[in-house]
């Protein structure tokens, strides 16, 4: 018997068939939240292990937040040399969408997939708050679900979150439209030019300090227009990449 599928069913099944790897390093904290965010956006999360130099055919990769290797040496400095990272650097240079969140952003900088680095917050303390960001670039693999200039609210929680780079690199990032997210209202860590997230030149690699994966589900996110903890502004990063991958 022939089954008829509506276009919506087709699209949903195509998205569900999209596999997004989430890497766990020793000391990673937010891998389960990131995997849940992928699932809530409609995709299929695939756990990846730091010591396994195999991406298992995933269509995109998320490097989640936490304190990999206890932030020993520098945040992300040791993770960068994990076996899985060699594969990720190679695949990212070939166009694989890669998102680094917080510690994942630090790892992408240490791996030279993104420029700059993170140092200790200017106020020297850990910060955990709900943060408004402006989405400035909606052409990356991870931001197409947003509109340019849109304000989103997602949590930020870090100790080494102060983005730094020399003036030449900062000018280049600004000039090429590679500042993807900027802190709006207040700068929580002293980051240069209020930069919260950046991309590589091709737009497939994005890193940001705040945590979109903690703002994907009503009841557990930041306060939103519909009431306390209703904010789901982070979901757009995950739906963006799924949209790109099935299109």
């Amino acid at each position: 018997m022939a089954q008829t599928q509506t276009p919506t069913d087709d699209a949903a099944s195509a998205v569900a068939g999209t596999r997004i790897g989430v890497v766990t390093f020793p000391g990673t904290l937010d891998d389960r939240d990131a995997a849940r965010a992928v699932r809530l956006a409609g995709g299929t999360p695939v756990p990846l292990w730091h010591a396994d130099a195999d991406l298992h055919g995933v269509d995109a990769v998320v490097l989640p937040g936490g304190f990999s290797y206890g932030d020993y040496l520098r945040a992300g400095a040791i993770s960068r040399f994990a076996p899985v990272m060699g594969e990720i650097v190679h695949a990212a240079n070939g166009g694989l969408p890669v998102l680094g969140i917080c510690n994942g952003f630090q790892i992408l900088c240490e791996a030279h997939l993104l420029p700059g680095s993170m140092i200790k917050n200017d106020h020297r303390t850990f910060i955990c708050t709900e943060q408004v960001l402006t989405v400035e670039n909606v052409d990356t693999a991870w931001t197409r679900s947003y509109s340019r200039g849109q304000h989103i609210t997602i949590p930020v929680k870090n100790q080494d979150g102060q983005f730094v780079a020399d003036e030449h690199v900062l000018d280049e990032l600004e000039g090429e439209g590679r500042v993807v997210f900027r802190y709006e209202g207040s700068n929580p860590n002293g980051s240069r030019r209020d930069i919260a997230g950046i991309s590589n030149a091709a737009g497939n690699v994005v890193g940001l300090m705040p945590h979109p994966e903690h703002a994907v589900e009503p009841g557990f996110g930041p306060d939103g227009p519909r009431g306390p903890r209703t904010g789901t502004d982070g979901l757009g990063l995950f739906s963006s990449v799924l949209g790109v991958l099935v299109s």
């Binding site: 140092i119 200790k120 917050n121 200017d122 106020h123 020297r124 102060q162 730094v164 020399d166 002293g190």
Partner: peptide, 13 residues
């Protein structure tokens, strides 16, 4: 050492 042009929050503390 941290580069001279980079703020050193720990040194400041």
């Amino acid at each position: 050492m941290p580069k001279p042009e980079i703020l050193d929050p720990q040194g400041k503390a």
